[in-house]
Design a binder for these strands. Structure first.
Lengths: 256, 256
DNA sequence: GCATGGCGTTGCGGGGGGTGCAACGGGTGG
DNA sequence: CCACCCGTTGCACCCCCCGCAACGCCATGC
């Protein structure tokens, strides 16, 4: 659709006022805002009054200046809860799969396991099948390590105490080596897994952050060990991190 | 000012659309929104298009439905950073001081210590002097315990390892009793301190939450031990919790 | 005390921008 | 194929948005 031809001018002006308040340090007066946006003062005053009626802005009684209102905060909470993680990530996963020519996915924590909620396939026939909706033990896959690396240490300790599956003879199941691995993940900004879930499967993963800076998901790239070799890790990690960062921005995270 | 007489109708309608999207589960279509607000469909479509131009709403390409946009999240971040904690809390502290007839304060974490940023005095001459802008060791005052109780355990462990001041012979400085005390604070929803900072000073404190549910400050009531007796704790704790909850709502927290 | 200048608000009336009507094009289901 | 739903857009009417001018309040300087 053509936005400009159908834009309602007064609504556009009101929205511009909201944005201008978002750019000001704290509060701004009618005179300043009207000068900044090229509006007549009385117009700015009326538009602000209307926004105030709905709680989108508030006015300081003493100074008469306006600031953003609590309704904006409430709306943001609702906006965050409605963001569809899968649809946001798919374009980036597709792009990553094309760039790496491997399978890519988005994983989240679900019932103590790594759940793949989205997947995009590369062009190779020898690859992993559809893993969407399926779980895997956190500690044995790269995306799971990413999620674990942002957990409280006591939660990691608790998981280890309950016992971790020895998926292959390369799976890390002891506390000290696992904590070291998770510290490495935090330091580097990405995780790897070499034959730890399946002997012939390697993977790289990077964290997705939300508006609060919390790690809420992981973007991963995985494939057969003969293609996803240690020599490719720097390239794959870089690409995964870029895709994860792009998804993070879509979730409201501050761009790095 | 009289809001209604000066409200700009189209802006009011656009704001109502934002609020309606905040109330919907995820996304809503033009037809549904227009029916809900009693607007003609074409009007709703144009107002939404205008809000979309400014990023306040987004449209799903496939379904054509609208949802709140990322600019709302960005605005909320700015709204939160502009809220003045002190001015928000003062009315509640004044009210609490009148109700309890003791000194009340608002404390925040500052450089690893409890900093009092606001204070309201009760009517008694024998009381604490102005503590605004001054710090105290976290673990020895009730408000500090509230803040510590929301910290990651590893951060508490780190503080204990560095050594805590033994302010009085009642100050808790060992890890196990301190962790138990902090668990008690979390369970009860308030903290106490009996002669732990000064032998003749007792206090109660309750947590202030922000829009994300994080503990960002503590409301406390303090006074001489001969007035702030154990028998008064239930009453003081209740009053402090109510004041803290009121401040929390002002910071955008969801009312309990 | 008064005058001046700044602020945000409000009455008024003209004209152009917002609105409802009607139609469009696309998608889905039978 | 048709019927129904959706979101979008051209058109023209009319009333609502807007700028002008004034108001009341506050702070400052003489």
């Amino acid at each position: 659709m053509t936005l400009d031809g159908n834009a309602v001018r007064s609504v556009d002006r009101a929205a511009a006022l909201l944005l201008a308040l978002g750019e000001s340090s704290g509060e701004a007066g009618v005179t300043e805002l009207s000068r900044r946006l090229g509006l007549h003062k009385s117009t700015a005053s009326r538009l602000l009054a209307t926004l105030q009626k709905r709680g989108l802005v508030e006015q300081d009684e003493e100074s008469g200046k306006y600031r953003l209102g609590l309704v904006v905060i409430r709306l943001a909470e609702r906006a965050e809860s409605t963001l569809d993680l899968r649809s946001i990530a798919m374009p980036e996963l597709d792009r990553l799969a094309r760039a790496t020519r491997e399978t890519t996915g988005l994983g989240v924590l679900h019932e103590g396991r790594l759940m793949t909620v989205a997947q995009a396939d590369g062009p190779n026939l020898v690859a992993v099948g559809d893993w969407t909706g399926r779980g895997a033990p956190l500690h044995s896959v790269a995306a799971g390590k990413v999620l674990m690396s942002s957990m409280a240490e006591r939660d990691v300790v608790r998981l280890v105490r309950r016992g971790l599956d020895q998926c292959t003879d390369r799976t890390i199941t002891q506390l000290e080596p696992l904590l070291e691995e998770l510290a490495r993940v935090r330091r580097r900004g990405f995780a790897t897994a070499f034959g730890e879930f399946d002997p012939s499967l390697n993977a790289v993963a990077a964290p997705v952050h939300d508006a609060r800076g919390q790690v809420v998901a992981a973007v991963d790239v995985w494939g057969p060990a003969y293609r996803v070799t240690p020599g490719r890790i720097p390239e794959l990690a870089q690409a995964a991190r870029e895709a994860a960062a792009a998804v993070s921005v879509r979730l409201g995270a501050t761009p790095a």
